[in-house]
Write a protein that binds this DNA or RNA. Sequence first.
DNA 1: GCCGGATGGTCAAGTAGCTTGACTACCTGC
DNA 2: GCAGGTAGTCAAGCTACTTGACCATCCGGC
Lengths: 148, 148
Amino acid sequence: MQNSEAMALSTTLLAIAGELTQRINEGVVARGFDGVRPAHGFAFVRLAPDGATVTELAVHLGVTKQAASQLVDEIVRKGYAERRAHPGDARARLVVLTERGWACTRAAEEAAAEVVRGWGQLLGEGEVRALHEQLGRIAPYGRIRPTW
Amino acid sequence: MQNSEAMALSTTLLAIAGELTQRINEGVVARGFDGVRPAHGFAFVRLAPDGATVTELAVHLGVTKQAASQLVDEIVRKGYAERRAHPGDARARLVVLTERGWACTRAAEEAAAEVVRGWGQLLGEGEVRALHEQLGRIAPYGRIRPTW
DNA sequence: GCCGGATGGTCAAGTAGCTTGACTACCTGC
DNA sequence: GCAGGTAGTCAAGCTACTTGACCATCCGGC
């Protein structure tokens, strides 16, 4: 494969990623969750199962723990999460989603589903599944880097 | 397809996009082009064929023309582009890549090709081509939104 | 022609989200 | 029980953006 083809593939993928991020965020806002940024969504993904500490969140997002702490301040202030005592470590605090945080997460899932349905109309359900499977095999582990 | 599956697909795609952006940028820096950010790469894509005006660049990048102008200042100062008189419009200035700008673009293509080769080893050449074709069909037109 | 609104570009000031640095509270291994 | 490491916050600074104001130039109507 030529270099220029690889670049074209990369550009296409990045354009789709940008569009996807924007559409999900718009969908979330349209469902009444204002003041949220895409970075919050990435945080919610990490917080969703059982909560996480600020440091864990920082690693997940690829930022300093100070930045993660500020982000937590923000989503706590807006009612999407709350800080609790950490069981078994008095230094740490467990950040967990509130009911509103869960509602926002569900809204993001709905928005994502809308976009993916659009893909389904262009490609067909089977190809979307194939796409998911292929991407799953080349995806990196662990953290996300939400800043370019 | 369930909402949670759509979200999983979205998360996977965004994780790959983040990884890809980071790897390309690292590859470019490793080839000796320091002081470049991913946003510069997106600008180069638009400038590459025949140059562009600041306003065209701003639309392409999805930012204000002031921001685009600052970005042009930066890449001009670093020797990647230069401003020329616009033929046929004395208000406008045509921003074109310098030889160093072209070299940097080729370096980005090489870096992208390295990453895509890695995908080829995981998926096989045929599946990478299929991926490219599928993504091409769901890609949005025109501009890129390099900020989340 | 030329006048008025639209457009291309820049200057200036403000802002948001990150960084680095310094610090306290707490945990853990010798 | 002390030394070094880790979780978290406070504070200050930086950078890439924004909004607002402005000048030079283009262009359509008269």
